[in-house]
């Protein structure tokens, strides 16, 4: 009889654990996709004027980060145009958000002009292009991917493939979430407005 009781108690314990786990998982699902494993991306990259900029100087602001290259006529302008719409839509709150365009093709982008490209979309977008090593380090800390692809028909014989999402970093420097490519500007704006 006591064995039976023990059995019931054990099953009850298993059930409790299961319920608890399910509850935890449901709770976690409501959080941001990456919030469970939040991390602090870091970077030290030159801006168009050659001055080194680091993640630390932007504490207190939200960062909206996009990795791309200026020779990219399709995905990059589309995303930067959305960032521009978001910044315009924020109105006074725009002061709390710093959009960054980090070049994953820094040498060519420095030659071609980084600021004229970012400014064509919005004056608030800060373009950064470091050395090859600094760029690799920044990408690793953001856990993003980019790769040079040899393509004979492309300008200079290569193109770049790259993570195409927009990343949101919080005022304390923590990764908050990503907006996947094609997320409408209105959606990004609405999400930001709930945070500001």
């Amino acid at each position: 009889m006591t064995l039976r009781k023990l059995q019931i108690a054990l099953w009850a314990a298993v059930a409790l654990v299961l319920i608890g786990t399910a509850g935890f998982m449901l709770g976690a699902r409501n959080e941001e996709p990456v919030a469970a494993a939040t991390f602090q991306p870091s970077f030290a990259l030159a801006d168009a004027a050659g001055r080194e900029r680091t993640d630390e100087e932007f504490r207190g602001k939200y960062l909206l980060v996009f990795f791309g290259f200026t020779n990219c006529p399709d995905v990059c302008p589309t995303t930067l145009a959305e960032v521009a719409q978001v910044m315009d839509g924020l109105g006074e709150d725009a002061a709390q958000v710093q959009p960054l365009f980090i070049s994953i093709d820094p040498e060519r982008d420095r030659q071609m002009g980084l600021s004229e490209f970012t400014e064509a979309f919005h004056p608030s977008i800060l373009g950064l292009a470091g050395t090859a090593d600094e760029t690799r380090a920044a990408a690793e800390s953001f856990k993003i991917f980019y790769e040079r692809q040899e393509a004979e028909a492309s300008p200079d014989g290569y193109s770049m493939s790259h993570s195409s999402a927009l990343y949101l970093i919080g005022p304390e420097g923590h990764w908050i979430r990503q907006y996947s490519y094609g997320t409408p500007a209105s959606e990004i704006l609405a999400d930001l407005q709930t945070r500001l």
Binding site: C72, V75, A151, A153, S161, S163
Partner: peptide, 19 residues
């Protein structure tokens, strides 16, 4: 001088644009 047709593909969040 060199117009081409491309297709942007986004796979696992990574964009590329093959011919």
């Amino acid at each position: 001088e060199k117009p081409m047709l491309h297709e942007t593909t986004v796979e696992d969040g990574i964009a590329s644009m093959p011919h």
